[in-house]
Design a protein around this nucleic acid. Structure first.
Lengths: 419, 419
DNA sequence: AACATTTTTTTGGACGCCGAAATAAAACAA
DNA sequence: TTGTTTTATTTCGGCGTCCAAAAAAATGTT
């Protein structure tokens, strides 16, 4: 059911509205806030000055104001933006290659990074949380930032994440299952922590980067070592009841098809993922479970050149991938009629080879009426979009769950991890 | 972006909150409203008396109050409920068998019905709206209700509806495509009108009947002459960007499979729908487009008895249907991880024959982790659920878009169609 | 008849928003 | 320089909503 409304809710809502405008468009003057939010100048003054005295926003010092084209008459505007020190967040990307961490300030600017080649596949599941906590501590040490100033940690993993339970249900990066993550971080560092699927974080990043384009209903497909999907429904990333993402990679394409890493047969991933392409091309039987090792970048490049040279086995691998991807997307379209499908990730490098088969499958797989309203877009997104999306999500969460509420003094919410 | 909040929004929200509680639990006393909404008694008094003077609610006359068990001390409660005359809505179900209409009052009670065997398949698409308007007029005449007292018409059709454009994009009930409906009704009768998919309306009806059970994330499959799906996401029926429903029936199952009514090959419907079952059983080639006629009920019963007798062709038809349904649902689960799947409609009569194959396919089609959290439920829903759902939806829309706003005097909204 | 109990209404205060007026800070013009 | 114009921001007073507390209403109990 909906939430009860009172004057408290009004303020919270409008504070949030103002912060959202700021996140989306960057620093702006109070007048612009009025334009973006629809609030009266009087209310903007009231809300913004409150946010400033809360330490969440700050006025730009005059020096910073850029010359805005032709000199304009009238009282000059004062730009307002997030106070970079209002909060900090840490984003962690866990993949089978290792860990990647980033520390961002309250504006989303990255202050420090850290990469670690640690492979976690065979690691003790119980020790993983500790490892992560240590990595985060090292990152913060590097940036000389006390732990308590981090408001939130976001963790993006390949595979199925249960963000409710804070666990990694199943991931190619781990042999074990149901690995607890959030609880350990929260216990060891005292920072709220959320686990999420990496493709969902890409979707989050896309929304943050261009709301007009990705804010409606869209499906974001990540192709690479695995195949993931982030679903955007009515401008929001869809997290199922448990917080799991759309497991497009493990949606069945053909009953009794090639063996997938997940143990089933015929998953989309078993046609489209890096390891699947190599398996097709090498003529290897698709009845053996694939190796769990990372695939060298060079191997994929070699496969691509082979295909461009016209080698039949390589070409046929891409053809099979294109068909599986096309039928998979056709099924998504039939169910959700997204207005946009984004193909992203390293796997899109070979899109020229895949595309004809994809299009043919799409045509065979779904009625014209539905297919016609979908725009398919290829974005060879830097994997950094996962980090960006994780940061965005963490900051938006802080905005909504902490900053939207009044000053700390006024309420009893636990919250030391700011400023 | 979110909506700006002011005292107006607060009242609107709380009025709606109160009306939702009433829709869900039926007549109740002010104290109960407080319990359900979390609003203070003072606010409940204020809001309810406003709604009463607006003619939207009414106090039950003392006579109607039921003896509530043991006599209780203290001031007795006064039950409040919707004023049945606050608005009326018309629900229309369009299927290949003909039309079915119902007129309901502001409480959702059905005042009059009308059925018509008119088949629309070969009718002039341009004339369909007029036909519908005439049918509605006849229904209202029967109930002696002036047209202007109907606040809304809801139309449920098999197939793809575009509720934005108010058209039937594609339906087995029509040969033509993109048949305009809403505009004609609105022009002829002056009543706002929405077209929707029939499976979505079943989902709407289920939510209305048991929010606790169906209010989360669920998929409702309707099996019968065709195969439809209504998707409930976070307690709300999902209407895609254009208003189309989840076209589960026309989601591909196997590339190059049997020919479907939609013109593609291998759709789920081409395995599971009535005509598909008969086609399999008769050994008819699945390369001819199926007939567009309604299938006699007796034919389906005959097929079922044949299967129960053990006839191989009949058994195999159900086996194929079960497998296609199971893989289809496995794909839905992979993408959306609903916590509940409801199988409904006449096609569920043969569930005992289908179920083993369905379960086997489900097991083969999706990893255990995802499958385990889904509850599959068979509900041989009376087709009347479509009408009920359409009425519910129309009334909830009136609540939200009209009643939630203050009295007419206070605002400039067009609205003659009440009380 | 007085008291107890429960529901509903009334009253007064707080808070948020808004429109209008006032103030601030600049460019422009004489 | 000094006043005028222009635009941005703040201040002030009014209005509507909510809530807590007190009052009133309506009934059962003793």
């Amino acid at each position: 059911m909906r939430e009860k409304a009172d004057s408290d809710l009004v303020r919270r809502q409008n504070r949030l509205l103002l912060m959202e405008a700021l996140r989306q468009h960057g620093a702006m003057a109070r007048v612009d806030m009025g334009r973006h939010t629809g609030l009266s100048p009087a209310s903007i003054t009231s809300i913004s000055s409150q946010l400033i005295s809360d330490g969440i926003l700050e006025e730009a010092s005059a020096a910073h104001v850029p010359a805005e084209g032709p000199l304009r008459r009238g009282r000059p505007t004062t730009q307002i933006d997030f106070n970079p020190k209002c909060a900090h967040v840490v984003a962690v990307k866990v993949s089978i290659d290792g860990l990647e961490l980033a520390l961002a300030d309250g504006r989303g600017a990255i202050l420090a990074r850290r990469t670690s080649r640690t492979t976690t596949y065979d690691a003790d599941p119980a020790a993983f949380g500790k490892l992560l906590a240590d990595e985060i501590t090292a990152l913060l040490a590097k940036a000389r930032l006390p732990t308590r100033r981090v408001a939130r940690v976001g963790i993006a993993v390949q595979g199925v994440a249960d963000s409710q339970a804070g666990t990694v249900v199943w991931s190619p990066a781990f042999r074990g299952r149901n690995i607890s993550v959030s609880a350990v971080i929260e216990d060891r560092l005292g920072i709220p922590c959320r686990v999420a699927n990496d493709a969902n974080m890409i979707a989050e990043g896309l929304i943050g980067s261009d709301r007009a384009r990705y804010g409606g209903t869209a499906a974001v497909v990540f192709m690479g070592y695995g195949v993931g999907m982030g679903l955007i429904i009515n401008g929001q990333v869809y997290h199922g009841p448990t917080g799991a993402a759309a497991e497009f990679g493990h949606m069945n394409h053909v009953p009794d098809g090639p063996l997938c890493r997940c143990g089933r047969r015929g998953c989309v991933e078993a046609y489209v993922a890096d390891y699947s392409l190599l398996r097709w091309a090498s003529g290897e039987a698709a009845t053996q479970p694939p190796s769990s090792n990372a695939i060298p970048h060079a191997d994929m490049l070699a496969l691509e050149t082979a295909a461009h040279r016209g080698e039949p086995a390589a070409l046929s691998a891409y053809a099979k991938a294109g068909e599986a991807l096309g039928f998979g997307l056709a099924r998504i379209i039939a169910i959700l009629t997204p207005s946009r499908i984004v193909l992203a990730g390293p796997g899109t490098r070979a899109m020229a080879l895949i595309r004809p088969y994809l299009d043919r499958a799409l045509e065979a797989g779904v009625v014209d009426e539905l297919r016609r309203n979908v725009e398919i877009e290829v974005v060879p997104i830097a994997t950094d979009m996962i980090i960006k999306g994780t940061i965005d999500r963490a900051l938006r969460h802080v905005d909504r769950e902490i900053f939207a509420y009044g000053p700390l003094a006024k309420r009893g919410r636990e919250l030391e991890n700011i400023a």
